[in-house]
Computed example of a mutant assay.
Amino acid sequence: MNDGSSIKPYLIRAVHQWCTDSMYCPHVSVQESGCSGIPAESFKDGEIILNISYQATNDLLIDNETIQFVARFNGVPRKVEIMIGAVVAIFARESGQGLTFIPEVNKTDVADEQGSSVDHPVSQDSQALSIESKRGKPFLKIIK
């Protein structure tokens, strides 16, 4: 995602802030091809839904190119990096309200961006990361 004038990262930050202010739990649905640091077995049909609340992540940073944070997968803390172009949706778990996007990442873009990066566990403490799987067609599910 080389276009610095994209509105997408601003909308992602806005929905995240709205969720936080409303005491909701913000979740993102992302494509596997635009992520690093997430174990491959966590993905279902090439996508994953991640809890990106401040309680579930450490060092959360949502900038114009990536979403970065430290989270635990199977008890192992990992530094996660998600390209903004890989974000399919951001929504509140409790209400299902949020935004969906057209993914802007394909595998050749990711290879160019990441070069030869390797996923490494980190040694920071963080709280558990909620992972929900998707089945079939994309949908938002209200969980109470």
Rank of each mutant, 00 (worst) to 15 (best):
K141M: 10
I52Q: 05
T57E: 07
K44V: 11
F91W: 15
E104S: 13
S130F: 02
Q97R: 15
E113I: 15
G136T: 05
V118Q: 12
S126Q: 01
I52C: 03
N64P: 00
V122Y: 03
Q124I: 12
Q127F: 02
V118S: 11
Q124C: 03
E81D: 07
Q97A: 12
G136P: 01
N106D: 15
E81P: 00
L50S: 04
D119Q: 10
R135E: 13
D63E: 05
N74G: 08
S130T: 11
D125Y: 11
K107L: 02
S117K: 13
F91A: 09
D109E: 10
I67W: 02
E104R: 14
S123C: 01
T108D: 13
V70W: 01
P138L: 12
V122W: 01
V88C: 13
A56N: 05
I82R: 02
L99Y: 01
V88S: 10
N51I: 00
F101C: 06
Q127P: 04
G46C: 05
E65Q: 14
L99N: 08
S95K: 13
M83E: 11
E65S: 12
S116P: 00
I102Q: 13
S116T: 12
D125K: 11
R78M: 11
D112K: 15
S117I: 14
G75D: 05
D45Q: 12
A56K: 04
S130E: 13
I90A: 03
E104K: 14
E113L: 09
A86Q: 05
K137V: 11
Q124E: 12
N58T: 08
M83W: 15
A86N: 05
I131L: 15
N58I: 00
G75M: 06
G75T: 04
E47W: 00
Q127L: 09
P121G: 14
I67A: 02
A89S: 15
A86H: 07
N51Y: 00
F101G: 07
E113G: 00
D59H: 12
N51G: 06
T100R: 13
V87T: 11
S117R: 12
G46T: 06
L140K: 14
A56D: 04
S95R: 11
A71D: 02
V105Q: 06
N51V: 02
I67E: 04
F139D: 12
Q114F: 14
F139H: 13
T108F: 04
L140M: 07
R78Y: 01
T57H: 00
I67L: 07
N51H: 13
F101K: 08
P121Q: 09
Y54D: 11
K79I: 00
R72A: 15
E113T: 09
G85R: 09
K137T: 10
E65M: 05
A128W: 03
N58H: 10
I102S: 11
S53G: 11
N106G: 03
E132W: 02
D112R: 15
I84G: 02
I82K: 05
L60N: 02
